[in-house]
Amino acid sequence: MATIKAGETYGFFTDTSVCIGCKACEVACKEWNQLQGDSPSFLADSFDNTGSLDAQNWRHVKFIEHVPDQSSTAGNGAAWLMMSDVCKHCKHASCMEVCPTGAIIRTEFNTVFIQQDVCNGCRNCVAACPYGVIGMNQQTGTAHKCTLCYDRLQGGLEPACAKACPTQSIQFGPLAELQQAADVRVAALHSQGVTQAQLYGRDDKVYGGLNAFFLLMDKPETYGLPNAENATLPSRNDVGGYLTAAVTAVLAVIGGLVAFRRRGMG
């Protein structure tokens, strides 16, 4: 891959149609970022024992198991949808919008990064991230998530997950190039009759566009991703919230003045 340059926008194109659920990305991520992982848990209803993205899991291979109860017939096999989930490095990032300390910054690679020495653990970003990406590290008392391997990019290396992915489900590169590759891929799938294939976060309908965008084999909600209608920023509620408070305040003050109005001294 070409040299990684500061000032250019980088991201991931995750093509879920070729993900085999091997979790090499999860392992590579943990290894490079020295994440211990959570204590192993057996969820018993899925091949997914990671559960969710959190402070220890910055990549999470989701298994969406659409296995029908009745046996499938020829040509009517049930599909497992797999998707290596990650921070989307949103153009309009909800986490960054609410962070009161300025800990969340945009790097020279246009990725979203949490500065550990600045973060004070208020968890406002956790409440805001619509993708459930951010987790709290109890040891450091700070918010953690995928850094898009900021340290590796600075050293001219591609992120560990993309390097480890054996099927190229995770592709890393300059965003414009990834978008072109995604357009070609989705067109090819459509021409093969796979009409359900769709790109998520490729255009600006979701949070102004995602640096880490996806090719999905079903609608976004199936993968636990908000659709364009639900992809809303926290600040949408500022005006309504304060306006209701202001109207309540006016009515309450009038009520108080009426109750405390001057009466006879008798």
Binding site: A127, N237, G241, T248
Partner: peptide
Amino acid sequence: VLLSVSNQPVWSDTWVLGGLFL
């Protein structure tokens, strides 16, 4: 308002919390 300015269920689904808490 702080609760509503999030993407949490319930909190971000309503605009009354500021007035209600007041």
